[in-house]
Design a protein around this nucleic acid. Sequence first.
DNA 1: AGAATAGTGTCTGTTAGACACTATTAG
DNA 2: CTAATAGTGTCTAACAGACACTATTCT
Lengths: 267, 267
Amino acid sequence: MSDDSEVRFLAGYKPGNWTPVAVTVDLVVLTIRGGQLHVLLVRRGGHPYKGCWALPGGFTGADEDLPDAAARELAEETGLRAAELSGVHLEQLATYGTPGRDPRMRVVSVAYLAFAPGLPDPVPGDDAAAAEWVPVSSLGLDRDGGPQHPAAGRRLAFDHPRILADGIERARAKLEYTTLATAFAGEEFTIPELRAVYEAVWGQPLHPGNFYRKVTSVPGFVEPAGTVTLTGGTSGGRRARLYRPGGARTLHPELTRPGRDEEPRDH
Amino acid sequence: MSDDSEVRFLAGYKPGNWTPVAVTVDLVVLTIRGGQLHVLLVRRGGHPYKGCWALPGGFTGADEDLPDAAARELAEETGLRAAELSGVHLEQLATYGTPGRDPRMRVVSVAYLAFAPGLPDPVPGDDAAAAEWVPVSSLGLDRDGGPQHPAAGRRLAFDHPRILADGIERARAKLEYTTLATAFAGEEFTIPELRAVYEAVWGQPLHPGNFYRKVTSVPGFVEPAGTVTLTGGTSGGRRARLYRPGGARTLHPELTRPGRDEEPRDH
DNA sequence: AGAATAGTGTCTGTTAGACACTATTAG
DNA sequence: CTAATAGTGTCTAACAGACACTATTCT
């Protein structure tokens, strides 16, 4: 496959039969604050959509791999260092390239999804006038992960409502069959804290007793740290045992969302 | 968000702060022939990787949406018309953009996955010297959807072994929780035919009796057509009832793959 | 008839979910 | 003590998987 004629071909190759396109990465960064699912948004400091809220993101570098670009943008917008970023789960979500989605030119955006345990307040990057954690519930997405309602309070730029909805639905689906919920919790956590993650992402309460049994019975999901919390709840209650993430990455059998009898799964 | 200053900005906008990149679509087209899972491959007629086998694909048009580009490439490589293509399931798989993956220049490839019922023999497109259905089992992918073994008979160009492995794992996973298997069958099919689809994609035999009960009991998966096949099997056997795809797109509860106790799910 | 394939009956072990209960801690 | 939270016991209906069986068709 690599012969003389190929070497000659590459030496004389000039791009021609292709369309100039800009490739960007956009990030759906999710975390949990105060029991509510939040997404990281920036207020755009420049045109187009100046002053609108948008997902953080930016252009990819000339020799930068896509996951690296996503990690770099995440670091720039959150001010996290490499060590802190290592605890953040980052995965590719989908790619959006409809002509006209950016009024400037043809832009193909590779969206990434990030799950993070309690991150600090963000630091606006170069292009942003502000950066904030925004409760997902304030954005008027419908419960099934559909696109943003037109009358929502804080409208998002570009096709970011669609990307955000896809990201949230992906997150909801992945909690069912992976151990990713532990990526929202710290190094050690209690089962009620883990349950709070599920309740925040899924947007509905779960049965505490059954959740406890389920989580502790799925092999590899969590392993006991052997210690308990220092105090009980703020208004009484037993101390909770502490756990660490187990070795498994997928759950068998899965933890199914209650009350969904015919939703699409993402992908 | 759309004010005078934005109009002026866009009128005077000149691309500058971005990297020139070519965007292509690559296709993982799966079908079933003779009880075996096959993938559509083309033999490259030009450099680079001249003479190697590769996934079909090509550059996106200047004002072409990504799914349209995928459908166009699919039509070009298979010679199918729009009416036939409507029965083909096409979904975005993932995007691959590691620098150097194409020796010519920076190429970001958006991969699509297509499931099709018995397609005709393909017609090579412009850039291809040949196009063929190739049994997936002949390509030396490991059973869990890992990348191609280096010593495999027919090596694929670029990072196409990885893309193919991702596509197959996606297909395997989606059979578990969606009704997509019916996209591999025709308009009407028997339960044993549907079982053959699962067995071909999953690569393992399933229990006929339990499969029958499961499939017919999941609401919306299949609905009886009221007729039976014209003959029994070639060497005896009862006639099978015919079914049509039901209205559901997802399966509740799912059809789980046997014998996998800790595989990653795709995405 | 005999082999092969389609489809059904039935049993067993596991699981989700409901509900009631015990254990422990703050105020 | 009382309220609140953590965790356990137990029952029931549903389900996966195993196995045996009946039904039908080809040679």
